[in-house]
Design a binder for these strands. Structure first.
Lengths: 254, 254
DNA sequence: CCTTCGCTCCCACTGGGTGGAAGGAGTGAG
DNA sequence: CTCACTCCTTCCACCCAGTGGGAGCGAAGG
């Protein structure tokens, strides 16, 4: 009984992608049944397709039988064109060396920020951002830096939704947020005070190429050292400018 | 006219994987026709499947029309279970901070080493290793460290093949290599002198958990500073031991 | 001009994919 | 002990989605 009622795309390829799509930051390990549920496919279909994916090491199973993304997909992912990250990384490293704080780089993808690189040491404050993870824009430093550089219509549309509120300090009033974003845009950097995670504050500056913010560089410190943030803003903006410069030089070559 | 002569696996899934498999470190950007050639699939098949992959951002196209691994696959790859890298990274960072040299972490996959992490700064010597790339074992420090910890039958079988010779300094004589590996195993670290790349030397130590080398930690310096290598061996081995310890503590928990 | 190369689209044929169902294995409650 | 539940595995008859040869198009280059 092929071609049944369910069709989350209907082609085999889309089924395979639906299976891969079942994995995300919040669900990195899934049982077969989980995958079937999350992808909307029949269990037997998932069973067969997953077996092929496992053969190829696109997926692997833990001893307890759950599946996770395999070595082969990780390897493939490393091939993703990422000139930005390559160019920026040494500078993140430098900023980290000079400050000893968590430093990360993010881009905007849709209405979220996507963290593409991160440098941290053994003594760094544990924070939410991981490379490959996504967070909303308004409670994060990099998010505000990126959002502030967008066109008015984009900002307006972003603010017109109900905004998540991960902590009591998150700013969600559209008016106040819009005001802050204008300020961020004017002075060239954003700050947050426990707006995403209690206990940590951040500063972030956009990486601007040809007038467009292609990424944002952020630095995070624990709340009881907020006062040190102001001393980090200058180096932060200097490094962001260096990355802008280096990246522009790169892209011209293509 | 389905079910033709070609069948690199014959299922749709295997075709999709063949397409993804066409991309590797040496071929990160391909035209449609390249993909068809490398995967052994008909051009029209590739055309259709690639279109679906592109919709999903598993692949993307550069302005010049060539395809490369897309953001979505990179993101998925970041989900790959990689406790080792997570545990080890802060220590690589620490070793880098203390030395300022290229530091990397590799595992064995088949007969090659696969680099899983790397820490480097702006002043580091440019070297071949990249996360996600593979190199043969005998000309690399991490490779020798890993190989030296393998069982005799494995070493013998490795040495019985014709070994690549990337530079004139590469050691390929089975007898000499076997002798060196025994020495490496005995003293707990390996060194190389321009055996993979002219101009750079390295030292490496295995990360041993329960008597098995699960990874190797390597450090690379430019050849005209070979003499500094000896001073790096102690910190290198100390950090490798720390990683072993931390990783063992992690795995026990599971 | 013609050739080459890469991409897009079409279409008749058919075999690979499908999902319901039944069976097995493991676990925990009563 | 049985019963209920969850998760995994295997089977199979039907049939539609996938296939690939080939034609056509546009760009580059000789």
């Amino acid at each position: 009984m092929a071609g049944g009622s369910r069709d989350p795309g209907r082609s085999v390829t889309s089924r395979v992608l639906a299976i891969l799509g079942a994995f995300d930051t919040g669900h990195p390990r899934l049982t077969l049944t989980d995958i079937a549920r999350r992808s909307g496919l029949a269990l037997s279909t998932v069973h067969r397709l997953v077996a092929e994916l496992e053969d190829w090491q696109a997926l692997s199973r833990t001893p307890d039988g759950r599946f996770h993304v395999g070595l082969r997909l990780w390897e493939l992912g490393q091939l993703a064109a990422n000139r930005l990250q390559e160019v920026a990384h040494p500078w993140l490293q430098e900023l980290f060396a000079g400050t000893g704080e968590n430093v990360h780089l993010a881009i905007r993808d849709g209405l979220e920020v996507l963290y593409v690189d991160k440098v941290y040491g053994r003594r760094a404050v544990p924070i939410l951002s991981r490379t490959g993870s996504r967070l909303p824009m308004h409670p994060t430093g990099v998010g505000k830096a990126l959002l502030a550089s967008e066109a008015d219509w984009f900002i307006t549309s972003y603010l017109s939704r109900t905004l998540e509120r991960p902590t009591p300090h998150t700013i969600t009033e559209p008016g106040r947020l819009a005001r802050e974003l204008r300020q961020v845009h004017a002075r060239g950097y954003a700050t947050t005070h426990e707006e995403m995670t209690l206990g940590s504050c951040s500063a972030a500056a956009p990486v601007v190429v040809d007038g467009r913010a292609v990424a944002a560089l952020g630095i995070v410190v624990s709340s009881h050292r907020v006062r040190e943030l102001r001393h980090l803003v200058d180096p932060l903006m200097a490094v962001a400018a260096q990355i802008s410069h280096a990246y522009k030089a790169e892209t011209v070559r293509d």
